[in-house]
Design a protein around this nucleic acid. Structure first.
Length: 946
RNA sequence: GUCGGAGUGGCGGAAUUGGCAGACGCGCUAGAUUAAGGAUCUAGUGCCCGCGAGGGCGUGGGGGUUCAAGUCCCCCCUCCGACACCA
């Protein structure tokens, strides 16, 4: 395509792809050579040029969600956000900020490993090659990054500190009284001093600290760490050979990556105690400048509900504890349900069916034990998809046991049913069919009593009633509305010792181990008692051993996980001296999940080469500090797909580091901005198979591929839809500046937008026309004069400056480009024959610089400047030129525009009305009538009402 | 089902606070230039009626508030996204 650009045969210096490519390479090399985008730190390493670029400037920390170095390289959808942050950063540099902007690589984890597995290469090899390719593609875009600060999470000098942070979590516990994490040593000291009384790890009884053995003491303490080992039901994916976090499992019960089946089973795993932070993660959303959409998603994920815990006595057991948000409905509880896997089931199950047990309750089994076993088996074999489809069909079996309603003394049957989940609340409910639809459905299916305890509103003809109304059939609660009844019953339960008001969260602790090779090894070893011990800081990093046989093996469903690190036979055992002589320890063989490295990379950008600390405190305080807000990264741009996982995990780690004094702000990201996605047309043939989008031909609204009709849809750009367009193609055809300009002009940054290759020409043409405004196409020399611009041009210029500044600050790059286009269109007309005045040409080049930096630099240089415009001041509008002395006002008659009049901008109302009445078209529409009312909005419009 | 977000010309979009709807661009039409081509230049382009002057309609649909509504209020429809038996 580039060779078709032979415009140069007529104009040797016309702007086109060939010229753009030359210019772009030249400026990229020069920026590198000059370290143009290196942001100085106030102290420590990376301090050089502080006086020049840092000292007198406010700081600005701009960040993108860093990419996985995927094997297929970039398509034009990927860099949308990167271009946006680059435009903003360049603009801010020109308005006097010390801007930190760089980009690292999130290179550990399943995607990299799966890619390596497919290509049969070691993940380190493929990862490094992919990073190199991505760097090349991104460099060609002219992104103004500080290359010294780019990190990869797979660098040992990076993951050394990921491991160090894990040890901070391992070495800390959550002090509920202080509402903060504290070093675990302080907990041990409190036990030793008798300030706190431990409970025995096996019996749960309060005991004296000194009466516990050293191993028992360790177990007491270990159970309270923010990073702890737990035997918990996990998502086991045999095909991937690893366990997965809840978030990595789809609603269909399959792995998000690879779509393999996932099974629930108990395994001993590392967990991070994010639940301790639930309340703060929720409350501190109020401190930060994120969209309501993302905040809502985080709130829903944390899932706070207020209610009560109530214990229902059961003969021969401690009773069943339930959580309910509607304690006021307790008088309507007609049965109870435990989750099938609830530990209490076996304990309270009856030996035989009680006299007169309803046939529907037994599941056809001879004894409760048989019924429970059969139901559990069936439940475990059901996929989550089946469960979903059966949402309405409630199933369960009776345990043969009865519980007592504390308020009435009534005996009610206890069931197990899979509509009650072990993982939420206490895994047990009191069922109130009158006020809960699920309970209603179950009660109808099993012939259980339904008692309304809230008077439904007049005309209510549904089943369970969940609205507000006076309590009925509820003894001492009768007549109270829901809120009052809740308060009253909670007081009663507390007074009588049956329960208490409480808060429950959906948020679960974070399952943090994976049976994978390509991840951060845990800095943990085990002693002869199988107790976990931290590897000392000075022995970090624990290097990922180089092994050839790293690939996970596909395993049978009932097999135990086999961490690949177990195959590094030289590595699994290690000799350490932890203060009591050198002994041999066994290493932790799991690795950390994908998310670990991305939880804190913004901190390492600040001080990437520091070998003594994660980040120098002075450097951290400078870049993360803020006078106006709670501090943190000033602008963080990325996709919504990280609304919960990454952003919640990162906030959690940050708060731990904050509690332990390693960072100075309670939140990591002050302002979050979600960029939209670039979508593209994709085409399917009659079999529904995707065909290559670039080979589809359009004919008058219908589409065909190889002569056969295909149907069109829009979707995310990518390999699977066969609709990728690569930046490299665009560089060749138009140059990087055109691509940048086009992506920024397509619409607001936060909206999805369809890619249309044929529309990119408009952006190319804009650069070509701006070039022609400043440069003579035949000689390549600037075609500018030092004569003053005419008044009109000067006004247009200053209005443009004013508008563009506002748009840049508000990330409205699309309208900034429109305003620059208008300015240039004006200049094309006003100075078609004469050279462009320098007083307009120079601001035009400077305003173009953030958007199309290579072209702008070249114009700037040809206008006679020796140095890069990176730190040149962005033009400022002269306020006196923004007000017009003569304005044209539309005149409405009864709200419809009927004419316009030109009046002095400061004309008074009477003058304006007189001018309006004098207008011929207005007079015609008034038809001799006297306006009943006149509205004059100064500088805006006139409305005459008849 | 619940919670979010969005619906404006053929297309992408603009309209900062209720004040000229459609900026800017793509596409399209006509003309200029060219041997030809267009990634060149100029002009036009919301829809309908009209030769024209001009008029009517118009921001998903219906109602309302207002001198004035894309913008505010009520009801409804459609699309996208997230969560989904959360007690």
């Amino acid at each position: 395509m580039a060779e078709a650009d032979d415009a140069s045969t007529t104009h040797a210096h016309r702007y086109g792809a060939a010229l753009a490519n030359v210019i772009e390479r030249r400026w990229q090399d020069r920026w590198d050579a000059e370290g143009a985008f290196e942001a100085p730190n106030p102290t420590g390493l990376l301090h050089e040029r502080w006086d020049e670029r840092g000292a007198d400037r406010p700081k600005l920390f701009v960040m993108d969600m860093f990419p996985y170095p995927s094997g297929s390289g970039l398509h034009v959808g990927h860099p949308l956000g990167y271009i946006g942050t680059d435009v903003f950063s360049r603009y801010k540099r020109m308005t006097g900020y010390n801007v930190l902007h760089t980009l690292g690589y999130d290179a550990f984890g399943l995607p990299a490993e799966e890619y390596a597995r497919q290509t049969g290469t070691h993940p380190r090899t493929t990862t490094e090659a992919n990073i190199a390719n991505m760097r090349r593609q991104l460099r060609a875009l002219g992104l103004g990054h500080d290359p010294r600060r780019s990190i990869a999470t797979t660098d040992p000098q990076y993951y050394r500190w990921t491991q160090w942070i894990f040890l901070q979590l391992f070495g800390a516990w959550y002090d509920d009284e202080a509402d903060a994490a504290r070093p675990i040593a302080e907990l041990e000291a409190a036990y030793a001093a008798g300030d706190r009384t431990p409970t025995h790890p096996d019996t749960g009884d309060e005991v004296a600290w000194d009466s516990l053995s050293r191993v028992e003491q360790r177990r007491v303490v270990d159970a309270q760490r923010l990073a702890y080992l737990d035997e918990a039901p996990v998502n086991w994916c045999p095909a991937l050979g690893t366990v997965l976090a809840n978030e990595e499992v789809t609603a269909e019960g399959r792995s998000e990556r690879g779509n393999h089946p996932v099974f629930r089973r108990p395994l001993k795993q590392w967990m991070l105690r994010i639940t301790a932070y639930a309340e703060r993660l929720l409350a501190d959303l109020d401190l930060i400048d994120w969209t309501d959409a993302i905040k809502t998603m985080q709130r829903n994920w944390i899932g706070r509900s207020e209610g009560a815990r109530i214990t229902f006595p059961v003969e021969g057991s401690a009773g069943i504890e339930v959580f309910t948000t509607r304690p006021d409905t307790i008088f309507g509880a007609t049965y109870m349900v435990l989750a099938p896997e609830h530990p209490l089931v076996d304990e309270l199950m009856a030996d035989a069916w009680p006299e007169g047990t309803d046939d529907r309750w037994t599941g056809g089994a001879a004894t409760p034990a048989e019924a429970v076993a059969a139901y559990r088996l069936a439940a475990s074999q059901k996929s989550d998809l089946d469960r979903q489809a059966e949402t309405k069909d409630k199933t369960g079996v009776f345990t043969g046991a009865f519980a007592t309603v504390p308020t009435t003394g009534d005996r009610i049957p206890v069931f197990i049913a899979d509509y009650v989940l072990m993982g939420y609340g206490t895994g047990a409910i009191m069922a109130v069919p009158g006020q809960d639809q699920r309970d209603w459905d179950f009660a109808v299916a099993y012939g259980l009593d339904i008692v309304r305890t809230v008077q439904p509103t007049e005309g209510f003809d549904g089943e369970a009633f969940t609205g507000d109304g006076p309590a009925i059939n509820s003894g001492f609660l009768d007549g109270l509305d829901v809120d009052d009844a809740k308060r009253r019953i909670i007081d009663w339960l507390q007074d009588e010792g049956h329960g208490e008001g409480t808060v429950t969260y959906k948020l679960r602790d974070w399952l943090f181990s994976r049976q994978r090779y390509w991840g951060e090894p845990f800095p943990i070893v085990y002693d002869e008692h199988d107790l976990p011990i931290a590897v000392p800081d000075d022995a970090l990093p624990v290097l990922l051993p180089e092994i050839d046989d790293w690939a996970p093996r596909e395993l049978a469903e009932d097999a135990d996980p086999e961490p690949p690190l177990g195959r590094a036979s030289e590595w699994v055992g290690v000799d350490l001296d932890l203060g009591d002589g050198t002994r041999t320890y066994r290493r932790e063989l799991n690795t950390m999940p994908q998310w670990a490295g991305s939880c804190w990379y913004y901190l390492r950008y600040l001080d990437p080469t520091n070998e003594d600390r994660m980040v120098d405190p002075g450097v951290e305080a400078y870049w993360m500090g803020s006078d106006a807000h709670t501090g943190g990264v000033d602008l963080y741009v990325g996709g919504v797909e990280h609304a919960v996982l990454h952003l919640l995990y990162a906030r959690f780690w940050h708060k731990v580091l904050f509690d332990l004094g390693h960072v100075t702000t309670p939140e990591p990201f002050q302002r979050l901005y979600n960029q939209g996605y670039i979508q593209a047309a994709a085409y399917t043939d009659e079999r529904g198979i995707y065909v290559p989008a670039e080979e589809v031909v359009e004919d008058d609204g219908s589409f065909s591929f190889e002569g056969k009709p295909v149907s069109r849809e829009f979707g995310k750009m990518g390999k699977s839809l066969k609709n990728s367009v690569t930046p490299d193609e665009m560089y060749d055809a138009y140059g990087a500046d055109t691509l940048r300009l086009y992506e920024m002009s397509m619409g607001p940054l936060d909206r999805d937008r369809p890619w249309e290759t044929r529309a990119i020409i408009g952006s190319h043409k804009l650069l070509q026309r701006i070039w022609r405004t400043v440069i003579d196409e035949d000689s390549g020399e600037a075609r500018v004069s030092d004569d003053a611009a005419d008044d009109e041009t000067r006004r247009v210029l200053h209005r443009t400056i004013d508008g563009v500044r506002g748009d840049m600050d508000g990330l409205r790059f699309n309208t900034a480009i429109a305003k620059l286009t208008e300015l240039n269109n004006h200049l094309t007309k006003a100075y078609a024959e004469a050279p462009t005045p320098r007083e307009v040409a120079e601001p035009l080049a400077l305003m173009l610089a953030p958007l199309a930096p290579h072209t702008a630099e070249e114009l700037w240089a040809r206008l006679g400047h020796d140095s890069s415009l990176t730190y040149e001041a962005f033009p400022e509008a002269d306020a006196s030129l923004l007000v017009e002395d003569l304005v044209e006002l539309p005149v409405q008659v009864n709200g419809k525009v009927r004419g316009r009049v030109a009046v002095a901008a400061d004309a008074d109302e009477a003058t304006i009305v007189a001018a309006a009445l004098a207008d011929e078209a207005v007079a015609r529409h008034l038809d001799g009538a006297e306006p009943r009312k006149t509205i004059v909005v100064p500088g805006r419009m006139v409305n005459l009402v008849v």
